[in-house]
Nucleic acid binder design. Structure first.
Lengths: 232, 232
DNA sequence: CGTGTACTTGAGGGAGTTCAAAAATTGTGG
DNA sequence: CCACAATTTTTGAACTCCCTCAAGTACACG
């Protein structure tokens, strides 16, 4: 990818959106790139945090492994999302592992380089705070859901969250444009793949969803899912 | 409280720690104060976010109410903690309600005033990011715990977290220096007060804890609690 | 003291996990 | 292109942790 193409991607990201075009060009020129194949990891949980990344295209799944070997999915990251920055700002090792779920291209900057950029363009600090604030809001929402809601509602909410972040409208409904396994959904909602499987089967029977293994999930009746997610 | 006393408090807070003394004095002079009696709220969830606050002394419980009337405790805030800032930075209504659990004094600054301070002293932006990063880390930890661990471990972890943030060593153990009900613990760990009550009763029998209603909880055997929290 | 609030304790039930196995789908190598 | 292996998904059955429901108890505060 050349600098111009990179700049075009960055201009669309929330982080750099609205910056003067010349500045974005300069930032784009300072970036290095990396291309990940499916199941490749960008870095490992526990590695020293050295770089900021932005997803150009593709999709990453952010996993956290517990000391006793269990796994949770913190979130999926798509084009424009910042990866690794929170750890770099805190000067702590990366707390999770980003894995490509499809071919994915990312841009990267060293911590020092990004610090220079941020002191040169203070608006970037505000953008970073907005990003972190959004992350906090999302985590609080999930904590509330998992604390108070039944499994079915949590699964519905998880699917709707992904749809809101990455959904693509088709003629029959909304498609989740990357592979999403029952295991992934289980690790996003704090349940087991068995329960997810049973729940999705019921929804497929009901005509709310469609999509089998390795074909992308399609939500046929988003309204019905919202109803399930919000039922008192 | 006079400006000098306020400045002394601010210098001890993580947010202003390390700043030039003259600057902190100026910031302290710009603050207004508010004194809350037990059960008074600083603001209400849903109110427009207009001010940043810092706890001078006392203790706040940060509650979030769900649309269907359930309640969760996001965290307790003590001296030096920033309250409300995340919402102000995001320009969204306060997402939760801080309630005093004991007599509490806070300082406050308007959003505009804080923006001036932050552009005048850019290091404050870095401090704010560190604070938000810490909040993200704490939320991710809790999400992981509630997703993968049994209730007993979560309750132990919640108590240990409070002990780490606010514990006071005494001759017999570590005291939690503010009233903490079973209901509070239940709303922190995503369980019911019944289960918390049973669990604490068992621990009191075992000699791990002590403290009845409205007297402060004392952890007699922190090591034992850590063992429970970390058991595979 | 009396009333309200917090806490304790018991019994029963149910949502969801765990264990187990089969079925479906994808990938692979001849 | 087909057979076989690997992986994901489905489904069944039993169990269990924890919630729900229901009283009763103890403590604090007016």
């Amino acid at each position: 990818m050349d600098t111009e193409a990179r700049a075009a991607v960055l201009k669309r990201s929330a982080f750099f959106h609205g910056l003067n075009a010349a500045i974005v060009d300069k930032i784009a020129a300072a970036a290095l790139e990396r291309l990940l194949k499916p199941n490749e990891t960008l870095f490992q949980q526990g590695d020293p945090s050295t770089h900021h990344y932005i997803v150009a295209w593709g999709r990453l799944r952010l996993d956290q492994t517990t000391p006793d070997g269990k796994n949770i999915v913190l979130r999926f990251m798509g084009p424009g999302d910042l990866v690794g920055s929170v750890a770099v700002f805190r000067s702590i090792p990366y707390p999770a592992t980003p894995t490509a779920v499809e071919e994915t291209r990312v841009f990267q900057w060293t911590s020092d380089r990004m610090n220079e950029l941020m002191s040169e363009y203070p608006v970037l600090a505000a953008k970073a705070m907005a990003m972190m604030g959004g992350r906090i809001g999302e985590l609080q929402e999930r904590l509330q859901q998992i604390s108070t809601q039944q499994v079915e509602r949590r699964i519905a909410a998880a699917i709707l969250r992904i749809v809101a972040q990455s959904g693509r409208k088709t003629d029959v409904g909304v498609e989740i444009p990357f592979p999403l396994s029952r295991q992934d959904l289980a690790e996003m909602t704090g349940t087991t793949l068995h329960t997810v499987s049973r729940t999705l089967s019921a929804w497929i029977d009901e005509g709310v969803l469609e999509g089998k293994r390795s074909s992308h999930l399609v939500v046929l009746k988003p309204h019905r899912l919202m109803q399930i997610a919000e039922q008192a």
